[in-house]
Design a protein around this nucleic acid. Structure first.
Lengths: 208, 208
DNA sequence: TGCTGTGAATAGTTTCACAGCA
DNA sequence: TGCTGTGAAACTATTCACAGCA
């Protein structure tokens, strides 16, 4: 399935396409052309065709793409055709909000563990999850198994958490702390950093 | 100050550099070379020098960059040398977490308004902010003035909120809803979309 | 000497334009 | 006819390599 090195940005766009296709599918749209999909996703239509071409031929010439089929293929490419087990580190404002966020469960993402260092929080429940002490992180992860660690701690503790996740054998990290985490090359880190986005907005608002 | 069209990605990196410089400054580091800063930020040193070259010459040959000076310049370039007034739309789990998030106030970002449609929430207080009804959005924004609207509503209402913000004259939008918002060209939209990041993680974990 | 600033070379990405096929 | 798939062209971004200067 993976012929060449796929650009990261292509993967991000596939995810956007998949999202829009899911919407179309929900509205019972059966067929879409690259031009229409491109318009909805804010890209050039050749872009979409090129992105898809990395992985195969999913369209029908003269017709377009069958929404359900393409959605299925994209979800398979992205690896979304399975359930992903998440572990949350840091149940502060943001962490708790993530736990309660409906979108996760809807999309095949499921939080199976939550850790915090605050004795006041340990043992309390959010949704159906009991908050465990960070000290038990390695043991608990070993026990239940998680695919992705979600770091939502204070900036200063983020690196330490990442190290513990790595030690526990976790290979994927979603990091909400605005710090540059260091980890071995085989560990994948994605940063969600809204302060960077805010800064970019300020730049644009300042210059134009 | 703005000679040519600056790539968006350069702006993002400047923000990362600024963050690291702030850290260095806090630790009383006076001087840093592009090689050292590059290492800390995970980029090539020529990249840093090129990024800076868009805006001027900030270094000293044979020496490097004075941390305080460069930080000051970067903050000026990004427009962070003023206070930015934010308005929150949607005080759900995520919205409330953002309001309580310390980082914002620390960095010159300040929430001055919060709106929600839920009658149960309207009139209640989070921190020092009273939650206003969405219906009053245009009036209230006119009254107090905000620079950036932060959308943290349900996906289905995000576009409507964006439209109202635009009508109220807001030119910057930080959107947390995983939808592609439409707005006039002079309105700047930045998306914070952690589901896209999660999808990218899944792809990487699936393929390697 | 040891750094920055930058032209030139390289690498990567997007768009065009059209052949090929249902 | 009207779309996809794709080679080629255009554009953009990154890295190299070194001149220039404190």
């Amino acid at each position: 399935m993976k012929y060449a090195k796929i650009p990261e940005i292509t993967i991000h766009r596939l995810s956007v396409y998949a999202r829009h296709l899911a919407l179309l599918d929900m509205n019972n749209v059966k067929l879409i052309s690259s031009v229409n999909l491109a318009e909805a996703c804010g890209v050039n239509s050749a872009q979409i065709r090129k992105d898809l071409a990395y992985f195969g031929e999913f369209g029908v010439r003269g017709i377009g793409y069958y929404v359900k089929d393409l959605l299925f293929e994209l979800r398979k490419i992205l690896g979304l055709n399975k359930e992903w087990r998440l572990g949350l580190i840091g149940v502060g404002n943001l962490g708790a909000a993530l736990l309660r966020h409906a979108l996760f469960n809807k999309q095949g993402y499921i939080f199976v563990k939550a850790f915090d260092q605050d004795p006041e929080k340990i043992g309390t429940t959010i949704g159906t999850l009991v908050i465990d002490p960070v000290e038990k992180m390695e043991d608990e992860i070993e026990k239940v198994g998680i695919d992705i660690g979600v770091i939502a701690t204070q900036d200063q503790t983020a690196q330490e958490c990442a190290d513990r996740l790595v030690r526990a054998g976790v290979q994927g990290v979603l990091n909400f702390a605005p710090v540059q985490l260091k980890a071995p090359a085989d560990v994948h880190i994605e940063n969600v950093d809204f302060t960077l986005r805010l800064d970019a907005l300020c730049y644009k608002l300042t210059t134009d």
